[in-house]
Design a protein around this nucleic acid. Sequence first.
DNA 1: CTCGATCCCTGGACGC
DNA 2: TGCGTCCAGGGATCGA
Length: 291
Amino acid sequence: MPELPEVETVVRGLRAALPGRIITGLHFGNTDFIADLPRLEAALPGASIEEVCRFGKFIGLRLAAPHGANGNRPASWLLVHLGMTGQFVVCRADSPVRPHTHVWLALDDARELRYTDIRRFGKMRLMDAAELPSFLARLGSEPLEVSFEAFCSALSRRAMIKALLLDQHVFRGLGNIYTDESLWRARIHPRRLGARLKPSERRALYAALRRVLADAIRLRGSSISDFVDSAGSPGDYQRRHRAYGREGEPCYRCGTKIRRIIVAGRSSYFCPRCQPAPKGRSQRAVRRQSR
DNA sequence: CTCGATCCCTGGACGC
DNA sequence: TGCGTCCAGGGATCGA
């Protein structure tokens, strides 16, 4: 399940392989996850890849069109979201094509950029460079770039902290693993309301997010089932998980069994002792669910 | 505004 | 061995 650290890992790999390359051909398999296929088919052949960026969980390839008659080279972006099981891999053009490969981009160096996605929860679309600012405006800030002050103001809402962190309009790039890991580290229950966090808790959460994301990027992401980087290699951060996926196992701090509840429609793993439930209505809801 | 439910999709785990 | 059922979850969407 690619989140910010996994997407960053892929982007770093692509950045080493793609800039300067020209797309010499393209092939498609199942394309029901592509927003505007004719637009891709028209724009990609002959385009050169100028830059590889990450916007939250989106991968962005900045493209320059082939030289036109008037010398203009309109720029565009190919945006790719890996969804749950998406893989974006650069490999030799003669290497075997794996099942569920839906897009092949042939490059001018005898290699191919291939998109593989078992569940097709991913997304792919092309947009003009002029459309990018409005696209980015709908996303929240990067969690590793946001100031502490902006972080606090974004969380000052009467919504559960887990839902706020997962909301890509609040911060971009966080998913289920890294919210649970950060909340465990900051000792905050996932059902706590953002607006009710004490200043010390906001500080702890800000620090936890930065630490967890930085460590996960350093270890090249978490590979639970499907994640691999642009060279096809898994990450290592799953060995550092302290909460996610550890239901029934002892908390690394206090030994209490990690519990799993549903918050914001997602499995949420936490230590019931280190991360005490909020008082009032939401606490009763948690108790009811735990029986 | 915020919530939960629903849908999309496939493979793996599990029960009988 | 095999079949049916449930579950994982990012994001869009809709009704409460």
